[in-house]
Design a binder for these strands. Structure first.
Length: 889
RNA sequence: GCGAAAGUGGCGGAACUGGCAGACGCACCAGACUUAGGAUCUGGCGGGGCAACCCAUGGGGGUUCGAGUCCCCCCUUUCGCACCA
């Protein structure tokens, strides 16, 4: 509709004035014409197939979820990638620039509920719509390799990979507590829980449920995933840090504390009473089975300072201890509830510490001391061993806890301030003292050792004596991939009464996801309600078997999709190994920082699995990663819920695709957030109009005079006019600036500004051009180069001008212009002259003037001469080509 | 609390290695062409002052001939992480 309005306005405005009509930049018209032409050439942006003599360049933008609507974040993301792809083609690379659809997932089911449309139909219709939008913007995708993850020719390979992982013990099933979102009615991965809430429903608190789940053993690669980060120097440091934290490696020791034979003695009971804990009877009646408590610590050097053990409320031993003890059971239940609530609310860090004494004691294996065993609400079962030794003097949390419950505080690390040991009396003010650059005290034979040294020695001693060992713990958990959802890849597993868990044979892949499944909001897997799907035959015994009815997490789809792009129509294998070897790793991956952890860590894991399967040679999927900023409007991220979205369609209809995408690159450097201002789009559109009018005006005469000359040198006359010189200088400075920027900083905003400066200079030179001061051949060369410079940023206009100036070769593959240092060089430069660091004047000198000449010119400059006449010149600082600073007294 | 990034005109942003602060664009103002146009072109546009000049890059110190840029302290914003033993 907006398009119609626009063209009507143009028609009215133009009136009958043919000349004005010709000079009016009408992007709707130009872009429609080229879009149509490009649509007729499906191979327009096709990469040369492997093997190719050209150097390869694989540029990739993160594939979208087909919601049905391209939003500005997409436009920005893809504009960056598209500009780069077009530039690399012009630099002579064989560029792979594919696109696809991350098409499984919950929104399709939600839409099905809402509109009563089958997920498949909804999704495929959305893909058609978004593909149309992408083509309208003019993105240069090689659609021959398009992938759609919800189609069997893609997801069969998810199943194939799953079976390979199952064979190698990398996929396994276990009953586990899972994060359950009641709104999604499904399990969430740990990574999908944000502050205790669902990542899709940030108000919905995640519940815990016990379910049999399939897991992928990503932890087997934890160390390698961590080590690999060090080598990813083409990745933002921020992303590497986030992954490092996520993997969360900590080195320490596991120490076994034996349970003591006797239990509570009266004085401890008294202590418990004083500290306000539940009073517990002496316990020598029941002894828990198993006689030790394993504890993980990163500070084994402080073990002589341990004054209690703290167990997680869910620790198996606690269950046994509480079994015959209702009072303890009740206290533990309360602690568990506190922890659960805090976890759900996402502020586990702020939980008020509570604990309860169990009545049991454990023996510190280093010194034989009896330590009371407590249960603490701040101890997590799923980290380390679910039990800690509490060292109040040297740990913030233990200190807080010990103060509250009146537990003993034993100092075993020498407190120091600024490297100096402090007086005994001062020690208390330094507690808890957690520094590691000190010495052990009160630690038996280990006293006097440095902390680090003691950590190694004590762990070694524990190992020798058989009550512990040095160990490494990771925060990273195995990846739970089971989803009780319909719209995902069926997990290719069968359950046979006789043979148990049986994998579906390769020959029966894909396990097709049935259509016509009723989507409801009931819990459980929708597939479980389809008898035709569930009932199968066991491949081993031929008897009846039940199919797995859970589907895979959609992050499985995106963990390896970029490999499939290299060989998307392969129906014998996920891809051909030699083709992948040619294209990988991805040279440049571009997307939002919100995928810094989930997608990017899963795909690094998947890459290593495929490598170990012998399918690929690379360890890492992505050489360089670029995370672009968000699109902001009115101070908030553009989103439907904020009501501040701007539709790309509307922008394109009003200002054209070129202006819209160019604005998305012009308004901010690509790694920063972008503030969307519609007036800015209008400004870029105006600029493109100026280019258009200038080129139309001068293009025809340039076209006829051009006579095949392809270099500025050849076109330049022997003694050019000052205008000619100035224009050529600016032209080559602009080429240089943009070329260098593509190789380094990617500040496309300043590249576009540079092109604007060039155009400003050109239009300002109109009178000189009209007076014939610029030879047609030079003008032609300038126009040709300007068009090439615009090609990566504004492809529609570039194609239009390319044709207009009489060029017939393919602009997509036209060589990027080379800059000529000699032509780019300034003849005269302005040099600021300061007195005592304050700007006082500016002098103009030859670019190759000697220091002597510059100094003389500066001192002779009338203003300067007057200012220093009465003073003594102490120093003259001369920075070649930059500035003169005269220091006077 | 820990870590990272950032703070520059009315706005988005330039200034890459310390060297003319505000490129380029928006908005705004004035003018031209025009019987209206959300078009195009020209000029102006950080603040103060008639001026020479002075003051300005979140605030305060420092290093330097010279600081938006380097160092120290503080403030604000955004984003990660957050009892991980």
């Amino acid at each position: 509709m907006a398009t119609t309005e626009n063209s009507e306005a143009v028609t009215q405005a133009a009136g009958g004035d043919a000349a004005l009509q010709d000079l009016r930049y009408n992007p709707a018209d130009i872009e429609a014409r080229w879009a149509e032409r490009w649509a007729e050439q499906p191979d327009l942006y096709a990469a040369e197939p492997y093997p190719s003599a050209k150097p390869k360049y694989y540029v990739l933008e993160m594939l979208p979820y087909p919601s049905g609507q391209l939003h500005m974040g997409h436009v920005r993301n893809y504009s960056i990638g598209d500009t780069l792809a077009r530039y690399m083609w012009m630099q002579g690379y064989n560029v792979l620039h594919p696109m696809g659809w991350d098409a499984f997932g919950l929104p399709a089911e939600n839409a099905a509920l809402k509109n009563n449309t089958p997920p498949r139909q909804w999704t495929l219709a959305n893909i058609v719509a978004m593909k149309r939008q992408m083509n309208r913007v003019g993105f240069s995708y090689d659609w021959r390799n398009e992938i759609t993850t919800c189609l069997p020719d893609y997801y069969r390979w998810n199943q194939w990979f799953f079976l390979r992982m199952f064979e190698r013990g990398l996929a396994y099933r276990k009953k586990s507590k899972v994060n359950w979102c009641p709104l999604c009615a499904t399990v969430l991965a740990n990574e999908q829980v944000v502050n205790g809430c669902c990542w899709r429903h940030d108000e919905q608190i995640v519940e815990q449920r016990d379910l049999e789940q399939w897991f992928l053993r990503i932890t087997r690669y934890a160390q390698e995933l961590l080590d690999g980060l060090a080598k990813l120097d083409g990745w933002p440091e921020k992303v590497r840090t986030m992954q490092r934290n996520w993997i969360g490696r900590s080195e320490g020791a596991e120490i076994d504390f034996a349970l003591a034979d006797e239990c509570t003695v009266p004085e401890d009971e008294e202590k418990a009473r004083r500290s306000g804990t539940a009073i517990l009877p002496a316990r020598d009646d029941v002894k828990p089975s198993g006689n030790k408590i394993a504890v993980f610590t990163t500070r084994v050097d402080t073990i002589y300072g341990a004054t209690s053990l703290q167990l997680a409320p869910e620790h198996p031993l606690v269950k046994q201890m509480a079994a015959g003890d209702p009072a303890l059971a009740e206290s533990v239940a309360a602690l568990l509830e506190q922890q659960r609530k805090a976890r759900e609310a996402g502020d586990v860090g702020a939980i008020e510490k509570h604990g309860v004494f169990t009545g049991y004691y454990a023996i510190n294996p280093f010194n034989g001391e009896r330590l009371p065993v407590w249960v603490g609400n701040y101890i997590l079962l799923d980290y380390g061993t679910g039990a800690i030794m509490s060292v109040p003097a040297h740990d913030d949390r233990d200190y807080e806890f010990a103060k509250k419950y009146g537990l003993e505080i034993k100092v075993v690390i020498l407190p120091r301030r600024g490297g100096e040991a402090v007086e005994n009396g001062e020690r208390d003010s330094l507690l808890p003292f957690t520094d590691e650059d000190s010495l052990l005290i009160n630690s038996g034979e280990f006293s006097g050792l440095g902390c680090q040294e003691a950590q190694h020695k004590m762990a070694a001693v524990a190992q020798e004596q058989g009550f512990g060992k040095p160990t490494v713990t990771f925060r990273l958990k195995d990846w739970g991939i089971s989803r009780q959802r319909y719209w995902g890849t069926p997990i290719p597993m069968l359950y046979c009464e006789k043979d148990g868990i049986v994998p579906v044979p390769d020959s029966e892949l894909p396990v097709l996801l049935p259509d016509n499944v009723e989507i409801t909001q009931q819990g459980g897997s929708p597939l479980g309600r389809i008898p035709a799907f569930v009932n199968a035959t066991c491949p081993k015994c031929g008897g009846p078997a039940r199919r797995e009815t859970d589907t895979m997490d959609t992050f499985v789809d995106s963990s390896w999709y970029f490999y499939r792009y290299t060989d998307a129509r392969n129906d014998k294998a996920p891809f051909a190994t030699d083709t992948v070897a040619y294209w990988f790793p991805i040279d440049q991956y571009i997307g939002g920082v919100e995928h810094a952890i989930l997608h990017l860590i899963y795909s690094r894991f998947w890459t290593r699995v495929m490598r170990d399967l012998g399918l690929i040679e690379n360890d890492e999927p992505v050489r360089r990663l670029f995370t672009q900023g968000m699109v902001i409007r009115n101070g908030a991220k553009m989103s439907k819920s904020k009501g501040n979205v701007v539709s790309p369609d509307e922008m394109i209809a009003r200002y054209g695709a070129d202006a819209t995408r160019m604005y998305s690159l012009f308004a901010a450097p690509p790694d920063r957030d972008l503030d969307w201002q519609e007036d800015g789009v209008a400004g870029v559109s105006r600029f493109l109009g100026r280019v258009y009018r200038f080129a139309i005006k001068h293009g025809s005469s340039a076209a006829t005079s051009e006579a095949g000359s392809k270099s500025t040198r050849a076109a330049a006359p022997a003694s050019p006019s000052p205008t000619t010189q100035a224009l050529l200088r600016k032209l080559h400075q602009t080429i240089r600036k943009i070329t260098e920027d593509f190789a380094g900083r990617w500040h496309f905003n300043t590249d576009i500004a540079a092109i604007m400066e060039l155009v400003n200079l050109l239009t300002a030179a109109e009178p000189q051009i009209a007076a014939g001061e610029v030879p047609d051949a030079v003008l032609a060369e300038i126009l040709r180069t300007l068009t090439l410079l615009l090609a990566p940023f504004a492809p529609y206009l570039a194609f239009e001008l390319w044709q207009h100036i009489g060029q017939t070769d393919n602009l997509l593959r036209a060589p990027w212009p080379k800059f000529d240092e000699a032509l780019a060089k300034e003849e005269q430069i302005e040099i600021p002259v300061q007195i005592n660091g304050k700007l006082r004047s500016v002098i103009c000198v030859d670019a190759d003037a000697t220091e002597e000449q510059i100094r003389d010119a500066a001192l002779a400059e009338p203003k300067i001469a007057a200012a220093i006449a009465e003073k003594e010149v102490a120093r003259v600082i001369l920075v070649p080509r930059k500035l003169v600073n005269i220091v006077v007294k």
